[in-house]
Design a protein around this nucleic acid. Sequence first.
DNA 1: ATTAACGTTAACGTTAGCGTTAAAGTAGCA
DNA 2: TGCTACTTTAACGCTAACGTTAACGTTAAT
Lengths: 139, 139
Amino acid sequence: MATEPTWSVGQLAQEFGISTRSIRFYEEKGLIKPARSNGGYRRYNKRDRARLKLILRGKRFGLSLEQCADILGLAAMEPDEAQQLRKALAYGQDIQADLERRLNDLKAMKREMQAVEKRMRERLAQLEGREPDAGKRAE
Amino acid sequence: MATEPTWSVGQLAQEFGISTRSIRFYEEKGLIKPARSNGGYRRYNKRDRARLKLILRGKRFGLSLEQCADILGLAAMEPDEAQQLRKALAYGQDIQADLERRLNDLKAMKREMQAVEKRMRERLAQLEGREPDAGKRAE
DNA sequence: ATTAACGTTAACGTTAGCGTTAAAGTAGCA
DNA sequence: TGCTACTTTAACGCTAACGTTAACGTTAAT
């Protein structure tokens, strides 16, 4: 007879390392809608928890809450019509294309950082290997 | 005798699809410092242009301007001391670790989106393949 | 020399994403 | 039953990253 497990704001906040204010803010913006206890306390179930997780992951790589909301909308949708489904699919592909672009940016960024690192390492080796007044190259 | 090519704010703004206000804002925050014409107009050279590019790429995947500034600082630094170099290296590695985390988040996100897409496609196939009153599953 | 297109600074306005505080109610344990 | 920790709504505050407007100077082409 085990009832579904639920959590309070505070518990989720602690678990995910964010403030209760943030979680309530996501609700203000329509991203989560937890049930309420008799006294009016928010009670989050597994699905609510999963949504929160998705939001946080989205935010971690720069999605706005609005974009997160869109994705949540897709994930939660109860499709009654093929039309709607097709629209959602198209939108989902836009998002995936965006993800692809971001992934490429990320990779480019990594390459640049590695190049910078290499230059720094070389220069450091020079300094430590003693080349007192050596390198004064114009770039 | 070809002088270095330079650009105006407007030209760069158009090229990169952003507002001139944004570019000037980056300057306010110390991210770029273009030369000036006699009349006081900003003239951007190749290096300025490259910096702007890096900023935009950084922003595209969620870096703050401050973080972009840090990276630009690393890239542009003229290291006089091994100490400084080592600090910069350590910082650069922090950034790379962060990039790594973001990359993983991104991949997870892609997987989820693909799962959503798959579910939608299946449902769509059902609808189009005619199963009039078939599926009414509680989740 | 005029003029349209572009640029300048300065200042205020706006949106997202929370932080913070206040004033009050609730949960649950001794 | 009382205590303490947690929760509620409401409202104000704050920073980043620009948008917008005003009032005015510069360029470049005709």
